[in-house]
Each structure stands twice: as C-alpha cells, then as structure tokens.
C-alpha cells in the first residue's frame, strides 16, 4: 500500500498557448499541501489531471495508489473535490444538495454536516441562487467535508471571499489538521492562507514546479540578510544566494539555504551584518518566481 495520496511523475500536458512541463509531485498521506502559483500558472490544470478530468499527454498520475484517469470512479469515491469554478444548482436549496450527495456517499456524516451548517451559518432552506459567493463556497465545502473523504482537493477555495468568510474557511481547513488520516491538497494564489495551514508547500510557475518543500524548511532556509559593505564595490555573494540588491554600501541578499557560517564569512570580509530576517511565504514565492524567470535554477 502506497504512503502517497498523490503522485505525479513526469507529467506533461500541451495546450495551444500553455504547457504543463514535467510535473513531479508527491503528497504523503496525512499531509496538507498548499499549491501556490500566480493566475494561469497551471494549478487548476494540475488539479484536473489529479482528479482524472483531463488526460496527461505523458507521465503518470496516481491518486490513493490508483492510476488516473482509468480509476477515476473509485478514486472520486474517496476524494472530496471542490473548485472555485464549481456551481451548485441555483434553483435548489442546500438541503436538496445534501440529500443528493448523501445518496452517493455512504460515509456521509449527518452530525458533522449539521455542525458545519451552524459553524458556516448556512440556511438549509435558502435557494443557492440567493447565496453570496462566500456562502456558496462554504456550502460546497460542507458538501465535500461531510462525506468524510480520505483526500481533499480544493482548487482556490478562498478566492473571491471577503476577509471574514476567508477566515472561516481557513479555520475549518485548519481543524481538519486534527484528523491526521486526512490529506489535503489546496491551491491558492494567496500565500497568507497557505502559510497558515500547510505542512508542505509547492510553488508552480508557467507550467513548471519550481520548488517544493515543507513549510518549516522554507521559512528556516530562506533569509534576507541586510549588509553594510566597507565600500561601494559590488558585493560578491556567498553561499546559496539567489538575489542581491545593492545601493551604495547597503546591500540586501536573499539566500535559500541559510547557514550561520555565511554570516561569519561576511564578517571576515569586513562586512557588517545588520540582520538576517525571516521572509514571509509571499516573499519566498516571489523570490522563487523571479529567480526562475531570470533563467537561473534555484
């Protein structure tokens, strides 16, 4: 039995104006992975391949140890999938949708559904077309979560939500962390959301995965070092530096494999080290994207 909930190996998909290139991705069971990329980076396409909605031109997609899209019926029985573009039937109410989903998933948990209904402040009798966007997304999440899936795949679950609704959705996702058997893949271009709830983070840009690691490693390894140089001569970067910004004697260096030894090395060159700051996930993501776009390899 594989310990991986999702495994993509050498996956390629060609479109007229976009290519998904050599995607290799692994999500171990029990982990929450944030899948981060700008709009049009390839997040939704990758997720469609994972869900068996689209066929890869080459490479292999395996979900819960089963090949996709061949085994999509069996896989989707165990996977809860929600996407920003999904719409429920506007002329029907949430109660009707619950009955429909309940008839399909034998593990539907009525108690949990009622709990979520209260927590999300949703009305069973209200027609879906009268729901706000936030209510619509929360209704979708309720329909996905109460079926108790082994794997949750959420494509941009918080996009377009107001801050309050976003916080509610994020809190619910964070609660899922308590259930260690649950695995979650969720895509977003909002790095703040991803930073709050993910164990693993994968960055995608222009159809290629540019970095993947666990959150702590990203936050520990990526630092911005503030330096004061003895002269205005251009700084010779040390260690795994991926970006240098220099203005006269003041320089700011970003490195992706921070090591205290680098600080010592700068000091030995008579360079004053003012600070080695932590970076936010957004800064790390942007640095990754810019570095890759500049044509270098991180």
């Amino acid at each position: 039995m594989s310990d991986l909930a999702i495994q993509l190996t050498g996956v390629n998909k060609h479109f007229n104006y976009f290519d998904l290139k050599d995607i290799n991705l692994e999500l171990p069971k029990g982990q929450i992975m944030g899948f981060v990329g700008a709009n049009g980076a390839g997040k939704s396409t990758t997720i469609r391949l994972i869900m068996g909605l689209m066929q890869a031109d080459s490479g292999q997609v395996s979900v819960m140890g089963m090949n996709m899209p061949e085994m999509q019926t069996q896989v989707k029985q165990r996977v809860g999938f929600s996407s920003e573009e999904m719409k429920l039937y506007g002329s029907k109410n949430l109660g009707w949708h619950i009955e429909f989903i309940k008839s399909i998933y034998p593990h539907w948990d009525d108690k949990y559904a009622k709990e979520l209904l209260g927590r999300f402040d949703l009305n069973l009798e209200q027609n879906i077309k009268q729901f706000s966007k936030g209510q619509h997304i929360k209704a979708q999440l309720l329909l996905v979560l109460a079926r108790k899936p082994d794997l949750l795949v959420l494509d941009e679950p918080t996009t377009g939500l107001d801050p309050v609704a976003r916080q509610e959705v994020n809190q619910e996702l964070a609660l899922i962390l308590n259930d260690e058997s649950r695995t979650v893949l969720f895509s977003s271009h909002n790095t703040a959301d991803v930073e709050k709830i993910s164990d693993q983070i994968t960055f995608i840009d222009r159809g290629a995965i540019i970095n993947t690691d666990n959150k702590e490693s990203f936050l520990d390894n990526w630092k911005r070092i503030q330096l004061e140089l003895p002269s205005t001569h251009p700084l010779t970067p040390l260690g795994s530096t991926i970006n240098v910004e220099q203005d006269g004697r003041i320089a700011s260096v970003i490195c992706n494999q921070f090591d205290e030894a680098v600080i010592e090395a700068y000091k030995q060159q008579n360079i004053k080290v003012h600070a080695a700051d932590n970076m936010t996930l957004e800064e790390i993501f942007l640095a990754n994207v810019n570095y890759r776009r500049a044509g270098e390899k991180v």
Partner: peptide, 17 residues
Amino acid sequence: KEDQLSFIMGLPLNVTD
C-alpha cells in the same frame, strides 16, 4: 455553461456514466 457540470464531474462517475 453554468459550471454545474464541474460539480457533477467531481462525483464518482466517468464520462460514460
């Protein structure tokens, strides 16, 4: 057109079903 098919596609079924 109204993306309700996206909701259906996530359920345990294939194109034939």
